[in-house]
Design a protein around this nucleic acid. Sequence first.
DNA 1: TAGATTGTTAATCGATTAACAATC
DNA 2: TAGATTGTTAATCGATTAACAATC
Lengths: 217, 217
Amino acid sequence: MKEDSIIISKATIDRLPLYFRTLRLLQREDVEIISSEELGRRLGITPEQIRKDLASFGQFGKKGVGYYVKELLRNIGDILGLHCNWNFAIIGVGHLGWALANYRHFSSLGFNLAAIFDVDPTKIGLHINGVQVFHLDDMEKIVQEKNIHIGIIAVPEAHAQEVADKLVVSGIRGIWNFAPRKIRVPGSIYVIDEDLSVGLSSLSYYLARKVPPKQQI
Amino acid sequence: MKEDSIIISKATIDRLPLYFRTLRLLQREDVEIISSEELGRRLGITPEQIRKDLASFGQFGKKGVGYYVKELLRNIGDILGLHCNWNFAIIGVGHLGWALANYRHFSSLGFNLAAIFDVDPTKIGLHINGVQVFHLDDMEKIVQEKNIHIGIIAVPEAHAQEVADKLVVSGIRGIWNFAPRKIRVPGSIYVIDEDLSVGLSSLSYYLARKVPPKQQI
DNA sequence: TAGATTGTTAATCGATTAACAATC
DNA sequence: TAGATTGTTAATCGATTAACAATC
């Protein structure tokens, strides 16, 4: 393993989940061995790119043969830390929070929704997808009790910073921010921004300009 | 304007919506002039980066002064094609499709939800956020009638390709794909992939590794 | 062995950062 | 005018692509 000595690029990290999901599909199709060529064809990524990405974490393939699906799946899962069985919380039971609470792929990846937070008294105490909704004021207690590491911000943008502050105080380590606003957190906290307007706006750009489409990720 | 001669990088395009949303905030705060320095501070982007991004589309600032918020807002909006008032459709009334149908930021950016599609007979004919749910079989007719340019795929992954095929046949030009699967479309169609598992998985990677967080976009 | 495919090094390409002249 | 800030060119940095030796 080389991950201690070499810094892996964000671009590589973001491709790992794509490899992972495709390998799972292959496993379900009972494919045992896959070449970088074929994996690339399925994802629209060049085989060289895939080999380079994987090689930065170790030697997972067999020369002249390819990659064993099961083995590679386990290795990428480990690299992504999916074996950690992270507990996460969703803050905000609007339409988006509701949808995320019911998103099935998270649990299939090993993420466990442990709590939901809101301030609306009519929502506190409800169970969504089997998970209880708590009041925002109880966050610190619940986060400690349930050992929650990740917070998903799904509140209106006006309250995003305030929620982020509470998450940090509660001891959360990573934030996935769906509010279309930059949040400020201490340097030790990881933040992934997921502003849904960006996708649609960039699509609009290309449609308006008639720029010829290129292969996307 | 230079956009005809020079190819703008995807990274630049993806930052434009961030500038746009921040400028709107500034406008609401009655700020009339902003420097690249201050805009960068708000977004965690270097001022040089911002000046470079904007300069690839024209000269929008005043040297020694900064950028006029109102003017820059209009210019970026035009670049992003937001004045086109795109009609879009959502396919799939699951939790995610429901949430997207109710997402307020789309309409505030000038995107108009014109139709929703599903196959579930109990959902056909319903109105969500004032927009009617049609059967998938009527897609071609409705897309033509309502002049829909963009399709948002929010169906289970197993049906994503089939829906993409239907969208293409119906004459759609751009697809925003939330299904965690690569879809195949003709080269003239734009596809933006938005696999929600990627965000959470990459967060997991950083948490598991204790890699020191760096400034995100 | 011959054919196939990885892992790695070198070459290219593209994006970011730095520096500074232009000018409001 | 002096100070400030853009727009642009040059330098650096990083990521992708190409090539190929290693080896199953």
